[in-house]
Design a protein around this nucleic acid. Sequence first.
DNA 1: GATGAATGAGCATTCATTCAT
DNA 2: AATGAATGAATGCTCATTCAT
Lengths: 197, 197, 197, 197
Amino acid sequence: MTRTAGSHGPTTQKAIQDAGLRLIHHHGYAAMSLRQLAGEVGLQVGSLYNHIRTKQDLLFDLLHGHMESLLTALDQALAETADPEDALRRFVAFHVDYHITRKAEVFICYSELRSLEPDNYAIIVGLRRGYERRLIAIIEQGVARGCFRVGDAPVAAYGILAMLTGVCTWFRPDGRLTAADLIDQYTAMVLNAVKGP
Amino acid sequence: MTRTAGSHGPTTQKAIQDAGLRLIHHHGYAAMSLRQLAGEVGLQVGSLYNHIRTKQDLLFDLLHGHMESLLTALDQALAETADPEDALRRFVAFHVDYHITRKAEVFICYSELRSLEPDNYAIIVGLRRGYERRLIAIIEQGVARGCFRVGDAPVAAYGILAMLTGVCTWFRPDGRLTAADLIDQYTAMVLNAVKGP
Amino acid sequence: MTRTAGSHGPTTQKAIQDAGLRLIHHHGYAAMSLRQLAGEVGLQVGSLYNHIRTKQDLLFDLLHGHMESLLTALDQALAETADPEDALRRFVAFHVDYHITRKAEVFICYSELRSLEPDNYAIIVGLRRGYERRLIAIIEQGVARGCFRVGDAPVAAYGILAMLTGVCTWFRPDGRLTAADLIDQYTAMVLNAVKGP
Amino acid sequence: MTRTAGSHGPTTQKAIQDAGLRLIHHHGYAAMSLRQLAGEVGLQVGSLYNHIRTKQDLLFDLLHGHMESLLTALDQALAETADPEDALRRFVAFHVDYHITRKAEVFICYSELRSLEPDNYAIIVGLRRGYERRLIAIIEQGVARGCFRVGDAPVAAYGILAMLTGVCTWFRPDGRLTAADLIDQYTAMVLNAVKGP
DNA sequence: GATGAATGAGCATTCATTCAT
DNA sequence: AATGAATGAATGCTCATTCAT
């Protein structure tokens, strides 16, 4: 954690994280300079170090915070589902909604994995695997109960995740489709895909 | 020594592009230094400039060459298809195969778009749009003929493309699945998804 | 160590300008490297950029500062002169004295004009034209009042300026002549030249 | 000398010197790159070295050739002059004419002295001193015969040389004045200056 | 004579980071 | 907390020069 206990700069801290997220999303971690970041927040470079430990830590905190809130939110969305089909519907709706709403976090969580130092990388990838496993489990349950039919559950899951995650690349809230339309269409496509002909 | 015996223009050019592709794929364009690249090829930094104009040009040439060969290969794969379902099968098989075989090119073509200068960006994105349009056209034809049923053709196309493209992130040729298995499963999923219940 | 004890912004700024002036005077702008400059001031190269924006800016600031102080000093020297002959005497004395005293600034202001980027060039040349115009005006007044006789006033002015400015190339304060001797002789030559036979 | 005996490339040799003169005049020796020069002549950089030994040699040959032809031409112009006043008239006419006609050579001969390596510097400065001495001798003779009156002959000579040399900076053949007008005016000014009131 | 490919040193500039104030 | 000045390493790129072909 970067925040010094007891310090009273939550505003600056937050401003740095927001600007950092935006800049990493736009230019990438390697291409973002701390001078740029300081400029966005209205500080001199040196002052940044009252709020972050290193550039790498800023990235890690962003990704780690994102993954934790993503997992918490998913568990909430899936709570008390017995039926795999119902669970899959909820998963699709949750994933698309979350990926539309917080596209920057989601995007850098995929694109900046390689910018993480080994230890940090392992942690984030571990959390991500947990997320994937929840979808795999749903599919495996569906297959076990005979309501889904797929060749290989993890492969099906990776395909579905890639398809749904793609929305954070192209979806525009002010475009032809509403988020609800999108969720409806993708839910139908995903269910058709796993239920078979 | 001013020249390694046996060195040869076109060979060096190719070596630079190969190493460049590999390094950009691994570390990203911004994080790859020309010193690293020169080292991989066995040259001094300055010598690189006998073969490339700028770092940006190296990236652009890589992406441009890739997009052109991708489009040519797709047109060949789709030649003489009358039936949308047949066309879609061929598209899936082609796309997955190509994205497994040349995963580095494909990956950087998505991930390094933002590293392109505006003019170069416009060119590559234009070519990519051409690729997407071919899939959209197939889906629209299928819908027109009543064999496919999707909410919105472009949205379906983006979903399918994202799903298929994902393979270049996780597929390992020495893994549990063969490329043929993968193509079979994904063809089935895609066709189910667009044919509806 | 991150900072030499006792170092201080404005002082360093001044040291950089002094050393920059000396080095540009000796080797020329293009031939002076910022490494050299940093070495003279006792800094690492990068630290220079806490005090200058670019190498070009350093040059421009030097020339601009010089031209402004030159014009101010000239106006002071010429204040309350009614008689053209008196004005010309004062001009010669002022110009020679200034060009002996601050020969480095004066020299680079002539020799490094071509190293200025277009916008900066225009500004400095504009100021210089203002200086020339003051001498031209004196000669024209003298001609109008019949005390001077020259073919073309600007041409006479350019000749006089070139003659006087030359001192910063060869005059040595510890040489055969004192500055006062020099001013006397040049005043006589200039007055003879413009008064005619 | 740069030219390999027996080679038959006088055209290329000449083209390189012409372009070199022009580029050094425009940008300065340090700022001119051999790549630029090669480009102007229509060669690759490496090929330049079939015609020059080094960049420094190119500069030296330019200056040395210039000084030798200047001295030869001056001696011709002054041949068979008995009278100092006549000699001074001829000197002014010769110097102005030469400095207008070959302004680029003349200019770089002043401005690029500092770019010469020590040995080359000594040679060129020696030749230049010879040129100055001819004017000093004329003035001293005039003073000895009582037709000129100046404080210090070398100082007068330096002033006159600076004044006359200045023309290569500002004179435009298509301007308000012809070369003849200029020579007339400057001859008058110089003679007035040295003859005294 | 010309070319293209190489070298190794050098360039101006930017970087993440540190720390006295 | 914030600043401004510093560090030392690194960046993309250019340089004069060499030389096998």
